[in-house]
Design a protein around this nucleic acid. Sequence first.
DNA 1: TAAAAATACTCCATAGGTATTTTAT
DNA 2: ATAAAATACCTATGGAGTATTTTTA
Lengths: 97, 97
Amino acid sequence: MFPKIELRHLQAVVVVAEELNFTRAAHRLHITQPTLSFQITEVEKLNGIQLFDRGKGREVKLTDAGRAFVEEARSALCHAERAIHLARAASDDCGTR
Amino acid sequence: MFPKIELRHLQAVVVVAEELNFTRAAHRLHITQPTLSFQITEVEKLNGIQLFDRGKGREVKLTDAGRAFVEEARSALCHAERAIHLARAASDDCGTR
DNA sequence: TAAAAATACTCCATAGGTATTTTAT
DNA sequence: ATAAAATACCTATGGAGTATTTTTA
């Protein structure tokens, strides 16, 4: 019923998918590489899915499951931000009415 | 850039909006009423928005901002769940291929 | 006075960090 | 030899709980 992840996990997966490099992704997210590594592993373990192939060497690749996940994750993040923006806009309307 | 809330907050707002009663909503969320009360306040404070009118008495009402927020929050939660479902489906495809 | 939300406080789980190891170029 | 990811461990923040107070219908 309740998703076993938080927005921070979605954000993490999306950025890693864009960078295909944990170290750079961690910088963008303002967290350390081990923390990011753990977050991704957490998402995969908790939900029984494999999002990235990183078995062979240091090259990080999206799996098919990862690609599907990222697309929806982007939408979720987008709507979450819109929720705040629209609520702010509605509040401001009241202020200037 | 990064939303100052997590999915649990979105879930909390959505359920309170449906119940219009913090105690019942808390039950549905499997948390206590004070915890829920605090979560909602947190969302409002951190983002400078007012989602519920609960100044007068014990009647809880959605504000305009709240209504806008809830709609997007539902979408965000929906996409988050779909992210997991689709990823699982993609994984299973591989297994049965 | 009863029912519901808010407040005060306490505590523990866990998110995040540092240090290190492993691995593949 | 280097660059990047994983692992181990530790700490501190804050998420969640219990107890209590406030409020109004």
